[in-house]
Simulated scan of single mutants.
Amino acid sequence: MELRTLEYFVAVAEERSFTKAAARCHVVQPAISQQIQALEKELGEPLFERLPRQVVLTSGGVALLPHARACLAAAASAVLEFADRSGLLSGSLSLGTVGGLEGTLVPSLLGEYHRRHPRVAVSLRGASSPALVAKVREGEIDAAVVAGPPDGEPAGVASRVLLEDRIVAVLPAGSRSAELANLPMTLDELVRGPVISYGPDSGVHAYIREAFAARRLRLDIAYATNDVALQLALVAEGIGIALTSHASPVLVADPRFAVVPLEPAIRLRKVFVWRAGARASAPLRALLDLWTELSA
């Protein structure tokens, strides 16, 4: 059983496609198929069920996957350990990201990281917060920036707060009366009309849902999208009021909209998470050290 074969196996398992796995590993598809078939023969049972449009893991494949990831992680850690000894940081760093990070520390952090460690291959993967936390726990990615859950820190991961944020109401400019223009909007007001906000797969959705539940109010999101720019486009069309992140750069100085605070306030955090209980790789440790340096 070779590391290269395990790399191909993990790629097929994550991509659910031999074609996509071959593209990810920069080899032709027959090479992937032959290696997987040889691995199945070696282990004595099939690892994938070949369906018309995708492949899925068999029970044997499910059993092998955590061992394969652990082997690859151990090999990568050994390589990086000796890269550390030589003073030349290299390897890879896979980061998950949610939307709305343009105005945070993340772009400048990654820019400085690239300048200092050009031999580290950094890859970004976008998804919802719950999905990214799961990928970090499983070791599929090294770390992620997510919306922290309202009830504390995400379980099974180490974390560091990146941004303290709040939810605001966004409505067409001039749509509130003069006497209300400078006052916060209550949650009771919001339930009277169509609401545009994040979908249930977003970590931000949990903060909004819990705030309404605490007031015993029913929240019906008529138009659910995690794309803040699309939320505002729907507001501009007069469809409803958006509940969105105040830190989003698309809210800055747009005369079409009034940005109104909420009463009570709905506060949230975006946090950087990585796998707990495991020694962080050298590239991840370097990123955390650089973050500390830039923050200071």
Results as ranks from 00 to 15, higher is better:
residue 263 E to M: 10
residue 240 G to H: 00
residue 279 R to F: 03
residue 243 L to C: 11
residue 218 R to M: 12
residue 221 I to G: 03
residue 280 A to P: 07
residue 282 A to S: 13
residue 269 R to I: 04
residue 253 A to I: 03
residue 257 F to H: 03
residue 280 A to D: 08
residue 290 L to P: 10
residue 277 G to I: 11
residue 284 L to N: 11
residue 234 L to M: 12
residue 228 V to P: 08
residue 283 P to V: 01
residue 231 Q to S: 01
residue 227 D to K: 07
residue 246 H to P: 03
residue 289 D to E: 15
residue 273 V to L: 00
residue 248 S to P: 01
residue 286 A to Y: 05
residue 245 S to Y: 00
residue 226 N to P: 03
residue 249 P to W: 04
residue 286 A to H: 02
residue 240 G to L: 00
residue 214 A to K: 11
residue 276 A to N: 09
residue 294 L to F: 03
residue 254 D to F: 09
residue 214 A to V: 06
residue 293 E to V: 04
residue 238 G to D: 13
residue 236 A to T: 04
residue 254 D to W: 09
residue 247 A to C: 14
residue 229 A to L: 13
residue 248 S to A: 15
residue 278 A to C: 06
residue 259 V to T: 11
residue 250 V to A: 14
residue 292 T to L: 12
residue 266 I to C: 12
residue 230 L to P: 04
residue 218 R to I: 08
residue 293 E to Y: 13
residue 279 R to S: 15
residue 241 I to T: 04
residue 222 A to F: 01
residue 285 R to W: 05
residue 254 D to V: 13
residue 263 E to N: 14
residue 282 A to R: 09
residue 241 I to D: 00
residue 292 T to F: 05
residue 243 L to D: 09
residue 225 T to D: 03
residue 280 A to W: 02
residue 287 L to I: 12
residue 212 F to H: 07
residue 237 E to M: 05
residue 265 A to N: 10
residue 242 A to S: 14
residue 274 W to V: 09
residue 248 S to E: 15
residue 217 L to W: 03
residue 253 A to Y: 01
residue 277 G to K: 05
residue 286 A to T: 11
residue 270 K to V: 01
residue 282 A to Y: 01
residue 243 L to M: 07
residue 240 G to E: 01
residue 215 R to P: 01
residue 291 W to H: 11
residue 254 D to I: 10
residue 281 S to Y: 03
residue 269 R to N: 06
residue 284 L to R: 04
residue 243 L to K: 07
residue 268 L to S: 09
residue 280 A to V: 10
residue 262 L to V: 08
residue 276 A to W: 04
residue 212 F to W: 02
residue 228 V to H: 15
residue 236 A to D: 08
residue 215 R to L: 10
residue 261 P to H: 09
residue 238 G to N: 10
residue 255 P to V: 09
residue 250 V to F: 06
residue 260 V to C: 14
residue 229 A to K: 13
residue 240 G to M: 01
residue 242 A to C: 07
residue 241 I to S: 00
residue 289 D to R: 13
residue 283 P to D: 10
residue 266 I to Q: 06
residue 270 K to G: 09
residue 261 P to D: 09
residue 273 V to H: 00
residue 281 S to D: 03
residue 282 A to G: 05
residue 225 T to A: 06
residue 254 D to S: 11
residue 272 F to T: 01
residue 218 R to L: 13
residue 286 A to K: 07
residue 248 S to M: 05
residue 240 G to S: 02
residue 253 A to Q: 12
residue 260 V to G: 06
residue 256 R to V: 03
residue 290 L to K: 08
residue 282 A to V: 12
residue 264 P to W: 02
residue 229 A to G: 14
residue 249 P to H: 11
residue 254 D to K: 08
residue 277 G to M: 05
residue 244 T to K: 08
residue 221 I to V: 15
residue 229 A to T: 10
residue 269 R to G: 07
residue 283 P to H: 08
residue 251 L to P: 05
residue 242 A to K: 01
residue 230 L to D: 14
residue 235 V to E: 00
residue 254 D to R: 14
residue 288 L to N: 11
residue 286 A to F: 05
residue 233 A to S: 15
residue 278 A to D: 08
residue 237 E to S: 12
residue 279 R to H: 14
residue 251 L to H: 06
residue 264 P to I: 02
residue 227 D to S: 02
residue 236 A to P: 06
residue 234 L to F: 01
residue 248 S to R: 09
residue 271 V to P: 02
residue 224 A to P: 04
residue 287 L to G: 03
residue 279 R to G: 13
residue 239 I to R: 00
residue 290 L to N: 07
residue 253 A to G: 07
